[in-house]
Computed example of a mutant assay.
Amino acid sequence: MYDPTRLAALVAVAEAGSITRAAERLGYTPPALSQQLAKLEREAGAALLVRHPRGTRLTGAGELLLVRARRVLDELERARHELARLTGLRGGTLRLGTFPTAGIHLLPPALSAFHRAYPDVELAVADYDPPTGVHAVAAGDIDLALTHTYEPAEPVPLPSSVSLEPVLTEELVLVTSPGHVLSAEASRLPPAELAGQPLISMAPHHPARRGVEAALAAAGATPAVLVETPGYAVVCALVSAGLGVAVVPEMVARTTATPLGVRPLEPGTLRRTISVAHRTDEPAPAADAFRALLRGVFGRAARHG
């Protein structure tokens, strides 16, 4: 691998036309610069320079390496500037992925706090249905992704370069049409009382919800309407219209636009954990700052029990 310092020496000699003038430009003595160039020639395995009375010219091999050297040095300089801006959070772009519930109810206060603290960092937000946001982080398409997991559920392996930091855990609650007998009380409802109830089944074939749907089926709930895509707004609208009951995250139940009855379940073992996915194999000051703000805004990590 070529040393960037020696590549810079080759570029300087090509532009200055002599080792003496290039040395003055770089702050070397001519003998020291000659040593750098000799080492570069050994790395290249070819003569790169021809000395003559009026200065120095490049050989064919030198001209070929010069083109590549300029590209390498340009990229390194660009990276240096970008990292300097990002390290100081004075520029760059923070790319975020989110799913609808988090994008509407969790992301805005955190983004607002981040923008006040770091107004020079541009923000880009894109929708990613979990767990696709995790894979987008692993691929480098985005810097962070808000994602979720459900309990009960089979564990899903993470890409080796990605880690999940829990933001909050919420229970899943029963939602009914307004005035429904099951939501008339505030006490926790035993799942067994769902037996025979028409259930708006939420994405029964979606990996994240599969364990929850199995638990509801084991309690005796009877699927009445299957919602094949993970859209809680549709589920709540169907429940509000009296087509059945459903089990949704508490955040969804409390913020839905349609009128609903809400009741907690016992023993509270159906949960959704919202986490932020981030890379662990490279420094990311803006992403780290945003994760810190998430912890500060919500002040509670995922918890069990």
Rank of each mutant, 00 (worst) to 15 (best):
A192C: 08
V234W: 04
E266S: 09
L66D: 02
G220P: 11
A61C: 08
R209D: 14
V235M: 09
A47S: 14
P109K: 05
E122G: 14
A208R: 07
G27M: 14
L73W: 03
D129F: 13
R291F: 08
I142N: 04
R51W: 00
L182E: 08
H180A: 13
P157S: 12
Y232P: 12
T280Q: 06
L270Y: 01
A184M: 10
L293K: 00
G17E: 03
R90G: 15
L260V: 07
R68W: 12
R90Y: 11
L164D: 01
G305P: 14
I274F: 07
L294R: 01
P152N: 08
A79Y: 10
D74N: 08
R272P: 03
A9L: 03
A257K: 03
P109I: 07
L94W: 09
R254A: 09
V175I: 11
V212Y: 01
V121Q: 06
P53G: 05
F114A: 02
L158K: 03
A286F: 01
R188F: 13
L64G: 12
G103C: 08
G55R: 02
D3T: 11
R188H: 15
H278W: 08
Y2M: 08
A110L: 07
H135Y: 14
A192P: 05
L260T: 02
T149I: 11
E170W: 06
K39H: 13
P157Q: 14
Q35N: 15
P131N: 06
Y2I: 02
P283M: 06
G261Q: 01
L89H: 05
A47N: 13
T256A: 14
L189Q: 10
V11Y: 07
A46L: 04
E193Y: 12
L33D: 09
R70V: 02
G305M: 12
F290L: 11
A186L: 14
P249N: 00
A292Q: 11
V297F: 11
L174E: 08
V137S: 12
G231I: 10
G268A: 05
A233F: 03
